[in-house]
Nucleic acid binder design. Structure first.
Lengths: 190, 190
DNA sequence: ACAGTCACTGACCGATCGGTCAGCTATTCT
DNA sequence: AGAATAGCTGACCGATCGGTCAGTGACTGT
C-alpha cells in the first residue's frame, strides 16, 4: 500500500490551500496524518520540500498547457480548446491553483512558488499581448481569479454541493463569455 | 499630525493583505512604521485588535450596501445601482476585500473575520435566492472573487498601471455582463 | 543468525512568535 | 514647580515554529 508519503502530500496540500502555508505547521500536518512531526520530516526534508512536492504536478501540467497555447495560433478554435483545457486544469488542481491565486504574491522567495507565479505572468502576458484594451486584460484576470475563487470556496458559499460535470459545464460557458474576443458573439451557436 | 495609530492601521492592512495575517509579525509592522513592537502594542492591545481596526470600516460600509440591497426590490435599476456601489466599494477597500477573499476561510475563529465572512455569505445567499441555475450562482462567485483578485494583483500582472477611473469603468462593464439576469441583453443600450 | 534498510519516534535546539512590564522622555495641566 | 498623561522603548516571558539527531522496532536479503 502506498505509504504515508502520498498521504502527506495530499494532506499538506489541502492545509496549505485552506489555512495558508505559513499558518500550517508541520505538527498539524503530522497530526492529520496520524504521524509525528519527525516522520513528516523523514519523508520530506523540509516544509518547503513538502510544498514543492505538493504543487509540482500542477506546475508541470500548467507548463504543458502554456507551451501548447503559445505555440498555437490564436484561432477561435484554439482559444476554445485552451479554455476547456484550462477549466479541466483548475478543476483537477483546484487546491494548487487556489494556493497560487491566494498566496502566490505573499510566498515570493520560495522558488517553486516563484516558478508558478511566472506561469501566471506568462499566461497574463499572452492574453495582454492579444488584447488591445484594459477591459480585455481585466477580463482575463477576473476569469482566472474568479474561477479559482469559486472552486475553492464553493463549500462555504454554495449552499449545496454541485456535481463536478455541472460545475465544469457552467465554468466553460462563463469563461467562454468572459474571454471571448470583444465584438465576438457570446453564443456562437445562435 | 495624525499620530502613528492611523499609520499603523494602514501599514498593517497592507501587510495583512499582501503577505497574509499569520505571516505578518508585529515586529515587521513596527519596522515598517519606524517604531518598536512595544509601540504597536501600545496603540493596539493585540495583533487581533489591530486586524479588527484595519477591516472595521470596510465591514461597516459593506453592511450598508447589503442592507440597501436586501431592502430594495431586485429591479434591473436596483441591480445596476448595487453593482456600481459594489465596484466602488472594492476599489476603495481593495486591501480589505482581498483579505476576506483570500484569507477569510483560513482566519475563522477571529471574530471580525467571521463577521466579514457572514457578509460574503449574505451576499452569496441573496444572489443564490435570485438565481435559478448553478451557472448564475457561479457567475456571482466569479464576479466577486475575480474582481477582488484582479484589483489586488494588477501590480504584478498588468504590465502598466491603469488609471483608477478606467479600471472602474471596465469593472462595471465586465461585472454588468457577468451579473446580468440570464436572457437579458448584455448591452441594454442597443 | 546477522547486517542493512525502512518507517518512525521523542528529546532537544535556536529562532521567532505574540504579549507583559517597568521605566524613560516630552508635553500638558493645575 | 509639580503631577499627570501620552508616546514609546528594551528586557523579558512562555509558546510554538522548523529542523536535527540518536535511537528503536519491523522487515528483508544473505
Amino acid at each position: 500500500m502506498s505509504t504515508s508519503a502520498e498521504d502527506l502530500r495530499s494532506i499538506a496540500l489541502t492545509e496549505f490551500a485552506t489555512a495558508g502555508y505559513s499558518a500550517t505547521s508541520l505538527h498539524r500536518i503530522a497530526d492529520l496524518a496520524g504521524l509525528s512531526k519527525s516522520s513528516v520530516l523523514y519523508h520530506f526534508s523540509s516544509k518547503e520540500t513538502l510544498l514543492e512536492a505538493a504543487v509540482a504536478p500542477a506546475i508541470q501540467r500548467m507548463e504543458q498547457i502554456l507551451d501548447k497555447l503559445e505555440a498555437s495560433a490564436l484561432t477561435p478554435e484554439g482559444r476554445r480548446a485552451f479554455l476547456v483545457e484550462f477549466v479541466d486544469f483548475i478543476l483537477q488542481y483546484r487546491r494548487e491553483v487556489n494556493m497560487f491565486i491566494n498566496q502566490g504574491p505573499s510566498l515570493v522567495d520560495v522558488p517553486v512558488i516563484d516558478c508558478g507565479n511566472e506561469l501566471v505572468v506568462r499566461l497574463a502576458k499572452f492574453f495582454a499581448a492579444n488584447s488591445a484594451t484594459l477591459e480585455e486584460k481585466m477580463r482575463f484576470g477576473i476569469a482566472l481569479g474568479g474561477a479559482a475563487y469559486m472552486l475553492c470556496t464553493e463549500d462555504s458559499l454554495a449552499l449545496q454541493a454541485a456535481p463536478v460535470d455541472e460545475t465544469r459545464t457552467a465554468l466553460i460557458v462563463i469563461l467562454t463569455g468572459l474571454l471571448a474576443p470583444v465584438g465576438a458573439p457570446v453564443n456562437p451557436e445562435d
